[in-house]
């Protein structure tokens, strides 16, 4: 089973943001998606997660077609994401930010939830414990009751990741997860991503940082101007003249 993009395109009016993109994200591996700024990486994530309508092509999870599914249905199909520009819920506490991540797995009836019946209370208690365990795993237990809006940048990124993990996805899309982090922090996250893949999760790592990607991925895709210009093992792809040109051109233009 894998997450597959088959000739996926996105047009905004006359502007082509993605042009017949083919990507396969297998389970149990970290797949890289790199490219210079404005290459259309986030557009791809937004199309996969149902936040942008797909103009053409097909997106499937296993044999399930999610091309035109709504964002919430796509989550329930087993996909989770983080956002390039961090989006935490600032009014809520750190713990509450994680609790909402478990939404996909809450199954007590609406009536039970409305009336506060034991079934609903038991479920709330259970996910609360799971959220606390998650905080412990990430070393943030002490911050559980703090308002999430006041966290440091690195903590907010981690919190977003915990929230996405709480939905227990089969595929995780990470949109520039280490942007703005120092080497120690990004190394510890790299370790976490490896661990996730080793449990069988399929990870799509969208990054600007080539070094980080080449360390983690066996297979990378390179996007430029909405088009895939190369794919393969990082060592090979990064020596590709077109890729080098795109990066050097992209960085200095």
């Amino acid at each position: 089973m894998s997450l597959t993009l088959n000739n996926v395109s996105k047009r905004f009016g006359g502007v082509v943001a993605s042009d017949s993109v083919n990507i396969t994200v297998p389970k149990g591996k970290i797949t890289g998606l790199i490219g210079p700024n404005g290459a259309g990486k986030t557009t791809i994530v937004n199309m996969i997660t149902g936040m942008l309508a797909v103009s053409d092509g097909q997106i499937t999870v296993g044999d399930r077609d999610i091309t035109h599914s709504f964002a919430d249905e796509i989550c329930r199909a087993g996909l989770a994401r983080t956002f390039q520009n961090i989006r935490i819920l600032p009014d809520n506490s750190v713990l509450e930010n994680i609790l909402i991540g478990f939404h996909r797995h809450e199954e007590c009836s609406t009536l039970a939830a409305m009336l506060g019946l034991p079934a609903a209370r038991r479920e709330s208690g259970k996910i609360r414990e799971m959220a606390i365990a998650m905080l412990r795993r990430f070393g943030m237990s002490a911050l559980a009751d703090f308002p999430a809006g006041g966290l440091s940048y690195g903590h907010q990124r981690k919190l977003e990741m915990m929230r996405a993990l709480a939905s227990e996805p089969e595929f995780m899309l990470l949109d520039e997860p280490v942007a703005g982090m120092n080497d120690v922090e990004s190394d510890s996250l790299a370790e976490l991503f490896r661990e996730l893949a080793s449990t069988g999760m399929g990870v799509l790592l969208i990054e600007h940082n080539i070094r980080f990607v080449s360390k983690l991925c066996e297979h990378v895709y390179v996007l430029d101007g909405g088009r895939l210009i190369a794919e393969g093992a990082p060592g090979v792809v990064l020596r590709d003249p077109e890729v080098m040109a795109a990066y050097i051109g992209g960085e200095h233009a």
Partner: peptide, 24 residues
């Protein structure tokens, strides 16, 4: 204090986040 309230709070603060976590 139920899943409904948590969903309401998420939707109010950020619809994209709520939807990405499976909240209709």
């Amino acid at each position: 204090s139920s899943r409904l309230g948590r969903a309401f709070d998420a939707i109010r603060q950020n619809e994209a986040v709520a939807a990405s976590l499976g909240v209709s």
